[in-house]
Write a protein that binds this DNA or RNA. Structure first.
Lengths: 192, 192
DNA sequence: GAGGCGGAGTTGGCAATGTCAACATGAGGC
DNA sequence: GCCTCATGTTGACATTGCCAACTCCGCCTC
């Protein structure tokens, strides 16, 4: 049975395959032609759905932001009763951010490189909303400042870990988990 | 007058040209052949000095770390009298880190991607030394923890700014400088 | 100073890739 | 039943990283 001339949903298939390829080998080695071949389609077919390689990569990054935002919110909402201390809940969400980065390093790298896809903005809004919830009654400027400070610390730690710039060997006697907690202390305030 | 057969110091010339090319156009678009042509040398000449493209890029990143470490230490040492409050001096150095990143975004991106060149370790040691000086008498584990927490916040902020993920538009009424200071507050403790 | 060794540079070529233009196919609306 | 046009295909081009084989010439040895 020969493949039908039309694929059905090549766009979605490309996106899915690209996501997998990025997670497996990093975005630098992703080849449009190889992708097309893997889907049993000619080497120029992808251009019917994405203007160029960068456009496909941007779509992959966008999907990544949707997943990251989802992971963040799930951790925030699933972290015990709504009445629990907001600081403790933020800590759970923060660990989810680090977890996402270290479990999908190649995707994470792609997401934070080059022009920001639309989903990035939404993901940031999700971050800010949880920080606002953790600081009831705070002025908007304060919320923005705290959000960015927290995000910076979180993101920097995630990136440095995933690029091997922070290695267990550098920590001396400290276990890696303790390091994470130390970073969270500065990002979110001491756990008390 | 024809070019002499031997270039003289092609290795250094390549490194210099590559550094310039990276700063100008980013490492993704750097082409060995174009580089060679610019130096009036054949397209395979670079392979006499660098095993491959990645090796050249690694050398560029290494040079970048030397400059970053230099900028950090210069800011630390030049920040007023030795007797000045260490926290204030760290703040000056931290601003130098952010300044380096935002003034040479493409180089900075390259430096913190892929395997760490040898200079990265030395640069980190420089960071840690200043933090240790700012925390006289602190246990080594504490110094390490504070260094990494500070570095994470600094680096995350720098990266997010340079990738356009933190834009003035997101800050609302806050001026960008105020945002920097808010991040430094969490990274280094309030300026008081 | 003659000879030759080896680092440095050259030429030519290969395979892969992104991208484009021109052409083919067939699903769905009229 | 026909026609349109989005979706795929074929073929081609320029560029690139990399390798092999060759050439050149500075320097060391005798």
């Amino acid at each position: 049975m020969a493949r039908p001339y039309h694929h059905g949903d090549l766009r979605a298939a490309l996106l899915d395959a690209a996501l997998r390829a990025v997670e497996a080998g990093g975005h630098a080695t992703l080849s449009l032609r190889e992708l097309a071949q893997g889907l049993g389609v000619s080497h120029a077919a992808p251009y019917r759905h994405f203007a160029n390689r960068d456009a496909l990569l941007a779509a992959v990054a966008n999907a990544g932001f949707a997943r990251l935002a989802e992971a963040w919110l799930a951790a925030w909402q699933g972290s015990g009763p709504k009445a629990a201390a907001p600081a403790a809940r933020l800590r759970v969400a923060a660990r989810a951010y680090i977890g996402f980065a270290t479990e999908r390093p190649a995707l994470f790298r792609l997401m934070f490189q080059g022009p920001a896809p639309p989903g990035a903005e939404a993901a940031f809004a999700g971050l800010q909303a949880t920080v606002a919830a953790a600081l009831p009654g705070a002025a908007e400027a304060v919320v923005k400042a705290r959000t960015i400070a927290m995000w910076s610390a979180l993101h920097g730690f995630a990136w440095l870990c995933l690029e091997g710039r922070i290695r267990p060997a550098m920590l001396g006697p400290l276990p890696p988990a303790a390091m994470l907690e130390a970073v969270l202390d500065t990002a979110l305030g001491p756990a008390e």
